[in-house]
C-alpha cells in the first residue's frame, strides 16, 4: 500500500519571516509589471493619456485661461500630475477585482506566502507605474517649457508627497475593487468620482474664475490642496501649509479606508 506517505506531520516552517514576505511582495509586483508586456493597451493608458491631457489643455485652454500656453503650463502641470495620479490609483482596485473574480486571488492565498503580499505587491507595482507617469509628465512638460522652480529637491519632494497621497487614496480603490462585481465597474467608479473631483479643484482653472458657491468647495477640495503643494514644490510659492494639509488628508483617507478595505476583503474571500 502506498498510503504511508504522510505517517506523521513533516517538519515544516510554522510561520514566515518578514524577509520572505518582502520577497513575495517583490515577486508579485514583478507579475503586475510583466502583465504590461502582454497588454500594450495598459502602457498606452499609462503614457498617452497623461501626455494627451498636457498637450490638449496647454494648447486648447492655455491662452484663454492664462494668456499664453507657456504660462498655463506652469499653472496646470502640477495639477495635471495630481489628476493623473488619482486616476492611476484606480488600477489597484481594477487589478485586485480581476484577481478576485478570476480566481487568481484564491490561488495566491492557498500558497504558503505572506497574507499581505498579494495586496502589497499590487500596490508596489502600481507605485512604479505611478512614478513612470509622473516622470513622463514632467519630461513632456520640460520639452514644452516647464521649468522646475526648486530644482531636484523640489522634484523629489513632489514625488514623495504624491506617492504618499496616492498610497492613501489607493485604499479607496482597494475598497471599490473588493466591493464591485466586475473590473469594469472600478473604472466606471473612477470616472464618475475622479472627474468631477479633479475638475472642481484649481487644477485647470484658478479658483477666482469660478462661481462663488463653487469656490467654497474648490478651496477645501483635497485635490486643490495637493495641487497647491505640488505647485509650491515644482514651481515655487507656499509649500509647508498645503503640504501639511495634504498629508493630513492622506492620513485621514488611509485611516478610514484601509480598515474598511481590509475588512471587506476578509469578508469577500
Amino acid at each position: 500500500m502506498t498510503a504511508a506517505t504522510v505517517t506523521a506531520p513533516l517538519a515544516l516552517a510554522r510561520r514566515l519571516g518578514v524577509g520572505a514576505g518582502v520577497r513575495h511582495t517583490l515577486t508579485l509586483a514583478w507579475r503586475s509589471l510583466v502583465q504590461i508586456k502582454h497588454n500594450p493597451m495598459e502602457l498606452l493608458d499609462l503614457s498617452i493619456q497623461p501626455v494627451m491631457f498636457v498637450l490638449l489643455f496647454t494648447y486648447v485652454f492655455g491662452t484663454a485661461i492664462s494668456g499664453s500656453p507657456g504660462e498655463y503650463l506652469t499653472f496646470a502641470l502640477p495639477g495635471i500630475i495630481v489628476q493623473n495620479a488619482l486616476f492611476a490609483t484606480m488600477t489597484t482596485g481594477f487589478g485586485l477585482n480581476n484577481d478576485l473574480t478570476k480566481g487568481v486571488f484564491d490561488r495566491l492565498r492557498a500558497l504558503p506566502i505572506a497574507r499581505w503580499a498579494p495586496l502589497a505587491g499590487r500596490i508596489l507595482a502600481d507605485t512604479v507605474k505611478q512614478a513612470w507617469s509622473v516622470s513622463l509628465l514632467i519630461g513632456v512638460g520640460a520639452i514644452l517649457g516647464f521649468r522646475l522652480g526648486n530644482g531636484v529637491l523640489g522634484l523629489l519632494g513632489a514625488f514623495a508627497l504624491l506617492l504618499a497621497f496616492s498610497l492613501a487614496a489607493a485604499w479607496i480603490s482597494v475598497l471599490v475593487g473588493v466591493l464591485v462585481s466586475e473590473p469594469d465597474k472600478v473604472q466606471i467608479f473612477g470616472f464618475t468620482v475622479i472627474f468631477p473631483l479633479t475638475f472642481t479643484s484649481n487644477v485647470f482653472v484658478p479658483t477666482d474664475r469660478m462661481p462663488g458657491w463653487l469656490q467654497h468647495w474648490v478651496e477645501v477640495n483635497p485635490v486643490t490642496i495637493l495641487a497647491d503643494a505640488l505647485r509650491g514644490l515644482l514651481v515655487g510659492g507656499p509649500v509647508v501649509g498645503p503640504a501639511i494639509q495634504a498629508m493630513i488628508w492622506a492620513v485621514a483617507l488611509a485611516a478610514v479606508f484601509a480598515p474598511l478595505a481590509v475588512r471587506a476583503l476578509r469578508r469577500r474571500v
Binding site: 507579475r31 502583465q35 478570476k102 480566481g103 487568481v104 484564491d106 490561488r107 492557498a110
Partner: peptide, 12 residues
C-alpha cells in the same frame, strides 16, 4: 489547488 475556473493569470 486547482479551481473549477482556471485561476491562472491570463495576462501572463
Amino acid at each position: 489547488l486547482t479551481g473549477q475556473y482556471a485561476s491562472v493569470d491570463e495576462a501572463l
